[in-house]
């Protein structure tokens, strides 16, 4: 067993893990952050996407010990402390970008990474970015719409702030 410490959603946490403990296991079982889901065992589905030091990764394919000291953000850390949804989360609700909700945390985390890298993605760029996120319910139509809408809103906010 090894001790790990990291910042998760802005909060310092630590715990004892085995070498083989996956980040997703540490989050779900160790920290009871069950919003990060496991939908496959071959790293394709993307239900487990979280941010490690600001980059989206698949928490099912990362060892917990390997992110010792890192800054982690999960779906639980996306809304404001008072519960107000982020622009991206709100766009998913407004545009019906989710049905069963199981892939949703990974979709949101993946899309958030896209929008911090590309503030004005085209529809095609959004679709290509989602290569690592599988949804069985929505046909992606409304997910893509939600991400494009969130991007537009965020650009508007940025312009307004300047």
């Amino acid at each position: 067993m090894a001790s790990v410490s990291m910042t998760v959603n802005g909060k310092a946490v630590s715990g004892e893990v085995e070498g083989r403990t996956l980040l997703v296991e540490f989050l779900r079982e160790g920290l009871e952050l069950t919003g990060t889901h496991v939908g496959c065992d071959t790293s394709q589905c993307g239900a487990c996407v979280v941010h490690v030091n600001g980059e989206s990764v698949k928490a099912c394919s990362v060892l917990a010990v390997a992110v010792d000291g890192a800054d982690i953000r999960t779906i639980e850390g996306m809304a404001a402390p008072d519960g107000t949804l982020s622009v991206l989360q709100q766009a998913f609700q407004d545009h019906h970008g989710l049905q069963c909700g199981f892939c949703t945390p990974g979709m949101v985390m993946s899309a958030a990474d896209l929008l911090q890298k590309n503030a004005d993605p085209s529809e095609q760029e959004v679709r290509e970015w989602l290569e690592g996120n599988i949804c069985r319910c929505t046909g992606y139509h409304n997910i893509v719409k939600a991400i494009l809408a969130a991007a537009a809103t965020l650009r508007g906010e940025k312009i307004a702030a300047e």
Partner: peptide, 9 residues
Amino acid sequence: DVRFLTGKG
């Protein structure tokens, strides 16, 4: 949606 979008499902 709110619970699914915040990891509270």
